[in-house]
Write a protein that binds this DNA or RNA. Structure first.
Length: 245
DNA sequence: GTGGAGTCTGGAAACGGTTA
DNA sequence: TAACCGTTTCCAGACTCCAC
């Protein structure tokens, strides 16, 4: 299940322009219905206002008829009418506010968001290539030098230093690209390739690679010999097949 | 059956790096 | 410096799917 942060990250950049109904709908969708009503009843209609409110639950101190219904859903109310905001509601809104604060802060300092990264990367100059600033092996011992992820990232970093017509691809990356293009389809493969420059070979290059390893796949043509060779190589005699009509 | 849209495949040309 | 290599984009033709 995705966290609130994971869900909100892609749209955080545009959230700051939301106001009124659009803002309440966003809170309703990503934070919660009650949480949205808490903001709406106080006319906290955008991020700017929300971040300036010290305590969004303070209005519950009022014994107003308008707020009683909402108070019953958002709080645990004692016989003497004292109340405690439900932990889940408070946690949700506080997490939401904290996320917005971090994002606003990152915008004002032009730093990356979220601030927690899996490896330390220091950008000394704007636009500078990070190729030589990431040392995967030293900073993460679990990152085996022979693992595919390592090879894949190294391949990208190497290609980022090359002009696009001189990319070189590790055989493991070519093999991965070949499998990816088969399972994802042409459009999905191109979408990924265009958004990850240097990560995957072009369709033409991939086609040449497939020809070089004798991969051409034809409908209704079963390659039992190749299958047997592979099963022998992994000492297995079981095959699972999925059929669709 | 037909026409349009989309997809797949193969070839050509261009570009930049490497090597003798 | 020229030949070669590996990659890219672009283009054209064949094919498939779908609505009419």
């Amino acid at each position: 299940m995705a966290s609130m942060e994971e869900e909100l990250l892609p749209i955080l950049d545009t959230v700051s322009s939301y106001s009124g109904v659009a803002f309440y709908k966003l809170v309703k969708d990503y934070v919660g219905i009650v949480e949205s009503e808490v903001l709406e009843i106080q006319c906290i209609k955008n991020i700017r206002i929300l971040l300036r409110i010290p305590d969004v639950f303070s209005f519950f101190q009022m014994n107003s008829k308008d707020t009683f219904s909402l108070k019953k859903r958002a709080c645990i109310i004692d016989d003497d009418m004292s109340y405690v905001v439900r932990a889940g509601i408070r946690s949700n809104i506080e997490q939401f506010i904290e996320l917005l604060k971090q994002f606003e802060e990152s915008k004002s300092t032009n730093s990356n968001f979220p601030s927690q990264t899996t490896t330390s990367i220091v950008i000394k100059q704007p636009g500078q290539c990070i190729c030589h600033q990431v040392n995967i092996n030293k900073e993460n011992e679990g990152f085996q030098s022979k693992s595919f992820v390592n090879i894949f990232i190294r391949n990208i970093l190497n290609n980022l230093e090359m002009p696009s017509n001189n990319y070189h691809f590790d055989p493991m990356v070519s093999k991965f690209a070949s499998a990816l293009s088969i399972v994802s389809g042409h459009n999905a493969y191109e979408f990924i390739r265009l958004n990850l420059p240097g990560a995957l070979p072009s369709i033409t290059t991939l086609r040449n690679y497939n020809q070089s390893i004798s991969l051409p796949l034809r409908e209704c043509e079963f390659r039992f010999d190749s299958l047997k060779t592979y099963l022998d190589s992994i000492d297995s005699s079981y095959v699972f097949m999925v059929c669709s009509s």
